[in-house]
Simulated scan of single mutants.
Amino acid sequence: MPRNKEFDHNEKLIVARDLFWKKGYNATTLNDLVDGMKINRSSLYLTYGNKHDLFLKSLNNYIQKKDKQYRKAAEKGEGPLEAIKNIIHSVLESALEDTNCLFTNSVFELGTTDREVGAILARQTLNAVALFEELLAKAKEAGELQSDKPAKALAHFLVSGLVSIYNTHILFGDEQLTRQNAEILISTIS
């Protein structure tokens, strides 16, 4: 009779996600995962699959977390333009607090070499673009945004700018520069 798994599946997934987040995919070893998650190898394989499967689950978990963060920040806005600014400020605060981003790391580490990871990253980028595009269109309709730039192109630019906030802070660790980067991004729609 098989033994019941005596651990919280989601709790252990978060531990794995955070390990990948801190070290990256390639630098995180199976021993790191087994030790960090405090489960044996067979439980890891039976529950999550191999290291790559676990990474995909971890990346999806991280993306869900960030998507909730963006939507929660957007909901706090009085109007669509303020919603966009709130999302940018939310990303800024995350970058300063976490000093790292699993999504950004994955773009540069695996985005072009791992088709499954690249597809997940592209899908999430398009989801973020769609959110910004919708908010930008509403801002134009409401007269909050006076721009002749196509909403889709501007939305792509803003999403790329979110990555640049993390990139700046990861590389330079300069809070003032990171804040300036976010404010310049906001100024493109103000």
Rank of each mutant, 00 (worst) to 15 (best):
M1A: 15
P2I: 14
R3G: 09
K5C: 10
K5H: 15
D8M: 08
L13R: 04
I14G: 03
V15M: 02
V15S: 02
L19I: 08
K23Y: 09
Y25E: 02
Y25T: 01
N26S: 15
A27C: 09
T29N: 03
L30E: 12
N31G: 13
G36T: 00
M37H: 04
I39M: 02
I39V: 12
R41E: 09
S42T: 14
S42C: 09
S43T: 10
S43W: 06
L44F: 12
Y45W: 12
L46P: 06
T47C: 10
Y48Q: 11
G49P: 07
H52V: 03
D53H: 09
L54E: 03
N61E: 12
I63L: 10
I63F: 02
Q64F: 06
Q69V: 05
R71D: 05
R71H: 08
G77A: 04
G77K: 04
E78F: 12
I84A: 01
K85M: 05
I88F: 03
L92T: 05
E93I: 08
S94A: 13
L96N: 00
D98Q: 15
T99L: 08
C101G: 01
F103Q: 09
S106P: 02
S106Q: 00
V107R: 15
V107S: 11
G111Q: 04
E116Q: 13
V117N: 03
L121Y: 00
A122S: 15
Q124G: 07
T125K: 14
A128E: 12
A130P: 08
A130F: 12
L131V: 07
E133S: 04
E134I: 09
A137F: 12
A137W: 08
A142Y: 08
G143E: 04
K149C: 11
P150E: 14
A151K: 06
K152V: 15
A153G: 07
L154C: 07
A155S: 04
A155C: 04
L158C: 05
S160F: 11
G161E: 00
V163P: 01
H169M: 00
F172E: 11
Q176G: 10
Q180C: 07
N181S: 12
S187A: 08
S190N: 14
